[in-house]
């Protein structure tokens, strides 16, 4: 069913993560993505895993929800893994078949790349699962506010984003209804060759576009009626303010990133020393 799509879907729960300031979570996602590309060995990999597991446990969101997001990028993951597997040059050749060679480095690269992609998706989906779209755009707007000094229309961008996000579930539901209505008139969306299937989409897409335009029109009218003139002089009903927990979270993030970078820079040396001794 269409309504089961979890694209940026919020999962309500009562956890520390849910209550954090959205700016912290945005920064956290960024820090985590950066940290994923710092590690080169098993120790860094283990650290990133432990961190992720802790976050998942704290978030109180069922693990199955995060895995759902992975389904969408299975193809991308497979292609990435294959490219890394076959196209990494290295000294230790494991298998050669025609022009295809698999090296030890290739295997290592493929595994790390795969892990990075999975962690990336799971890590960022934790952010969207614990933050409502509105909070997220609020956070983004506030975090990017300094850019408005150099004439970046931060408020407009945030408004566009929040409207777009707001309309995703509405349009999904609308699609569901129109699809059912046309199926009730005998439409068939599932069988036939490609051309027939594309043609079968017309009775779905035309009403969907018509309704999207109508909704956009109504919304613009409603905003106009309430004297919306853009971001100038606009204040928030619930302005974002950092709490004690938010500063603590920043500290933890800084610590985590510091350790990961330090291990990247000095880790190999310590590792080497141990091996040498």
């Amino acid at each position: 069913m269409l309504r089961d799509i979890t694209l940026g879907q919020y999962y309500p729960a009562d956890s520390v993560l849910h209550k954090l300031d959205p700016r912290v979570k945005l920064m956290g996602a960024l820090v985590y993505i950066v940290s994923l590309f710092t590690f080169r060995d098993a120790v860094g990999f283990a650290a990133a895993t432990v961190f992720l597991i802790c976050i998942i446990r704290i978030s109180k969101v069922p693990f199955s929800y995060m895995v759902k997001g992975l389904k969408a990028i299975v193809v991308l993951m497979i292609i990435t893994a294959l490219f890394n597997l076959f196209l990494t040059p290295g000294k230790q050749v494991l298998v050669t078949y025609g022009i295809l060679t698999i090296t030890m480095e290739g295997v290592k690269n493929a595994v790390f790349m795969l892990v990075r992609l999975i962690y990336l998706i799971v890590g960022t989906s934790i952010m969207t699962l614990t933050t409502t779209p509105n909070q997220l755009t609020d956070g983004l707007e506030k975090a990017l506010m300094p850019l408005s000094k150099i004439r970046v229309p931060v408020h407009s961008i945030a408004m566009i984003m929040s409207i777009a996000l707001r309309f995703i579930p509405i349009l999904i539901e609308e699609t569901d209804i129109i699809m059912k209505a046309q199926m009730a008139r005998g439409a068939d969306f599932e069988s036939g060759n490609l051309i027939r299937r594309v043609k079968a989409m017309v009775p779905l897409l035309v009403p969907l576009f018509v309704s999207a335009f109508r909704r956009a029109d109504d919304l613009a009218m409603a905003m106009e009626a309430r004297c919306y003139v853009g971001g100038r002089g606009r204040t928030k009903m619930k302005p974002l303010r950092y709490q004690k927990e938010d500063y603590q979270a920043y500290l933890i993030l800084a610590g985590y990133l510091g350790v990961m970078i330090a291990w990247r820079v000095f880790g190999a040396r310590i590792w080497g020393l141990k091996l040498g001794a």
Partner: peptide, 25 residues
């Protein structure tokens, strides 16, 4: 089955073609 607000499902260029959609299917 006639859905709620069924007028939102019209899609053809003419009324006649739209009504033909069901029988054609």
């Amino acid at each position: 089955l006639v859905f709620q607000y069924p007028e939102h499902q019209l899609f053809e260029t003419t009324i006649f073609d739209d009504v033909c959609f069901g029988p054609m299917n």
